[in-house]
Amino acid sequence: MALLGLLEREPSHGYDLKRDYDAYFGRGKPLPFGQVYATLGRLARDGKVLVGETEPGAGPDRKRYVITKQGVSEVETWLREPVEPEPHLQTVLFVKVVLALMSGRSAEGYLDLQRAAHLQRMRELTALKRTGGMVDALLADHGLFHLEADLRWIELTAARLDALADMVRA
């Protein structure tokens, strides 16, 4: 869907789409060319893009792709749909705390180590924000707020450990 959205701006070659995808959304995981052309082929098959004439010149990437009305409609529908909020109701953090308490190990020690790991990752993302551009900052913020939510849970759980221990050992 990201490629289709990028294509809505203007007719583009596969190379241009890959370059812009990598710049905005790749973040260290560049899109393989093969995946770009496989996706464009599928979109063409489904009537969401049209493949232009092969342009004269050297190089493999001489086709220009154009989004269709059906493609634009699909992008519009997708943008209007909220992403399902992830409930995270059964996280590994929770499982570790409960199992530590059940086995008489130190859940507090685990939470302390997890807090340190979270804060270390937050430092890395903060450094990325301070040295990178706006796209880096926005993506880093997303990660930072999620890590902060985890940390709030860690603090609250640490405060509730005695009560939780009584419950799981009952």
């Binding site: 430092r123 903060t126 930072l144």
Partner: peptide
Amino acid sequence: EPRVAAYADREIIVRDGTVT
């Protein structure tokens, strides 16, 4: 605030008057 602490080189936690 963890997002403020993330600007630091490292953190200590004060809990019940002692440092961890």
